[in-house]
């Protein structure tokens, strides 16, 4: 029983990490059809800014967390302006490849600017301390991941329902041209989408780094892959789908940790992707996605 509860929270918290990243991908994709492969590098951006602050003696948690979030948001918005705006009207593949390029650039900027070796952000790692509640053992981080993600999702829903830009974002996922006819600035809608996706990625960055304890230039790759898989699993471009896909992925991973013998631990990622492939054979449009029909906006 104890084991089940602990693992359930573990699955939930890992799933929450993926959901945060996947949501950011889904928001941008739903509005402008861009598959933002560079999204994973936001974790690196957040990580290295926190590392830099620690180097300069500003490594207190209350200082680095807001700066991390702010830096990632600004980076996301700047990238949209510089790299993704020129390919906004282009086919999805062009946007995807641009994003690959941006991703490689950021990775190598980390490599050039800092070091290929892993670095630590001690203040964030503190979040990963264990606590005992009764006979159960958890980490503070697991609660934070589950709790903060839940709050973030609620805030996002409120934003999307109560604000004009939020409404415009939902409407744009459906029909961007008509949103412009309403006098709503396309640039503003898209910049907001990137800012939100950056904010969610900033939160995810803190969690990822706390969980893994170290940052390196290529650390964004695996998380963004997982987030993509979560999106595809839930139905690409669907926000609820991204959340559900992330949670399913988290559960899948934890189950595989339990089920797979230790010698095959390294196969975990491969196994996860394999299962996802199998799910997609059964439902190519994802768990919550709709089948595309002639004339639909397709990926």
């Amino acid at each position: 029983m104890q084991y089940v509860v602990e693992q359930a929270l573990n699955a939930l918290s890992i799933g929450a990490e993926y959901s945060l990243l996947a949501l950011g991908l889904a928001i941008v994709f739903s509005i402008m059809g861009l598959v933002n492969f560079a999204h994973g590098e936001m974790i690196g951006v957040g990580g290295y800014i926190m590392y830099a602050m620690t180097l300069f003696g500003m490594g207190e948690l209350w200082m680095i967390l807001p700066v991390c979030l702010l830096t990632v948001v600004i980076t996301a918005v700047v990238l949209e302006r510089v790299a993704f705006r020129p390919v906004r009207q282009a086919p999805a593949t062009t946007g995807l490849l641009t994003a690959f390029g941006v991703s490689i650039i950021l990775q190598n900027v980390f490599l050039l600017g800092v070091s290929p070796r892993p670095k630590t952000v001690p203040a964030v790692s503190v979040l990963n301390t264990t606590v005992d509640i009764g006979s159960y053992t958890f980490t503070i981080l697991q609660f934070l991941e589950a709790g903060v993600t839940a709050i973030a999702i609620v805030l996002l829903v409120i934003f999307m329902k109560r604000t004009k830009v939020g409404l415009a974002m939902r409407a744009a996922a459906y029909d961007f041209t008509t949103v412009r006819l309403m006098g709503m600035r396309a640039n503003r809608v898209i910049a907001t989408a990137f800012a939100i996706s950056g904010f969610l990625a900033g939160i995810a960055a803190i969690f990822f780094i706390a969980r893994r304890g170290a940052i390196d230039p290529f650390m964004g790759l695996v998380p963004v892959l997982k987030a993509f898989v979560a999106c595809v699993l839930g139905g690409f471009g669907s926000l609820p789908g991204a959340v559900v896909g992330g949670l399913v992925l988290g559960i899948l991973e934890v189950v595989l940790i339990i089920v797979l013998p230790d010698v095959m631990a390294g196969m975990r990622d491969a196994a996860v992707f394999f299962i996802v492939g199998a799910i997609l054979v059964w439902r190519p449009q994802g768990l919550l996605g709709k089948k595309t029909e002639l004339g639909d906006k397709t990926a």
Binding site: V35, A270, V276, G277
Partner: peptide, 21 residues
């Protein structure tokens, strides 16, 4: 069975699976 972006993401997954193996 997949098209467009979903297919591309599956190719990424294939690369990771192969590497894992």
């Amino acid at each position: 069975r997949l098209s467009g972006i979903a297919a591309t993401i599956l190719t990424l997954a294939i690369l990771v699976i192969f590497h894992g193996i």
